[in-house]
Design a protein around this nucleic acid. Structure first.
Ligand SMILES: [Mn+2]
Ligand SMILES: [Mn+2]
Ligand SMILES: [Zn+2]
Ligand SMILES: [Zn+2]
Lengths: 148, 148
DNA sequence: TTCGTAGTTGCGACTCAGTTGCAACAAGGA
DNA sequence: TCCTTGTTGCAACTGAGTCGCAACTACGAA
């Protein structure tokens, strides 16, 4: 259920370098925050943490870097059922996709990797002639501790 | 692929009445817009159309009614990959869930009903002890006309 | 039918997420 | 070292959604 978190820190920087994308101080700070995050972060949390590394980082730079990483397919954007405001959450995109379940009572986020989900994506690509770039399955409901 | 749109107009009103929820002019206007929509609408589109029925309808009433319908489980909220701004889209919730695919090039939205999706939800409920209230699978990629 | 109450409304002001134009700056190849 | 082009901070902006409030109204009780 928890993500396989066995990547070498600094990998995101490498992936951008391989694509000929410039590296800068603020960018490095933001990437390191995303890379070492232990949970899903929103833009303002990323800003706050990035400022601990490079105090000059601006809000707009965070959004511009998130856009870059989305375009490069290196991060995923999530709603997490908008349990807490209208913002979005971000996480490193690793090998296999996973499903997010958000408990509407306690707010707990559960992640789940499923073979059936992979099969479903294959079915979509085949039956709908659709080339999938990103697939987001987000579920709202009640976790085992909160179900009634 | 297209939604089964064979509901009697006025059904949403009936469903709210059954739950002892008050009916008003503005509310009726908004419900009729949602009920007769042929595509996914955002809040400002719903407002514009509702004003054709009842010119006094306010933006805040649209949001309050959308919240009501979400809480009652009568509509679903979608991102549609935020292809066009940061807003959300709404649609009537009918019997079976469906998947939304958004083409990142032409913007076309394709809907798809899948037995595998139903199986996946059952698997989640069983394996994660999670009681699902709402499940949203949104996919971004390239449709058959745009794939390269 | 009238009445009372609790739910609903429009309004306007507000918050918050995200964007943009711009001038200064700096990465990194030549 | 220089040049080009991409990146940055800043400040002002947009657009989505929220909220407090006073006026209003749906609808059940009397
Ligand atoms: Mn995750
Ligand atoms: Mn969203
Ligand atoms: Zn819970
Ligand atoms: Zn297309």
């Amino acid at each position: 259920m928890p993500l396989p978190q066995t990547e070498i820190p600094g990998r995101l920087q490498t992936q951008l370098a391989e694509r000929g994308i410039r590296m800068t101080g603020p960018r490095r700070a933001i990437l390191s925050v995303i890379e070492t995050a232990s949970k899903h972060l929103d833009a303002s949390q990323i800003l706050r943490k990035a400022r601990n590394v490079d105090a000059s980082v601006d809000r707009s730079t965070v959004y511009r870097t998130l856009d870059l990483l989305k375009r490069q397919g290196l991060i995923d954007e999530l709603d997490l059922m908008h349990l807490n405001g209208e913002g979005h959450y971000y996480e490193r995109k690793l090998g296999r996709d996973h499903i997010h379940m958000a408990c509407l009572r306690c707010g707990k986020i559960t992640e789940f990797v499923s073979k059936t989900f992979e099969a479903l994506k294959k079915q979509l690509e085949r039956d709908c002639q659709f080339h999938i770039v990103v697939a987001r399955l987000e579920v709202g409901g009640y976790c085992s501790a909160c179900r009634h």
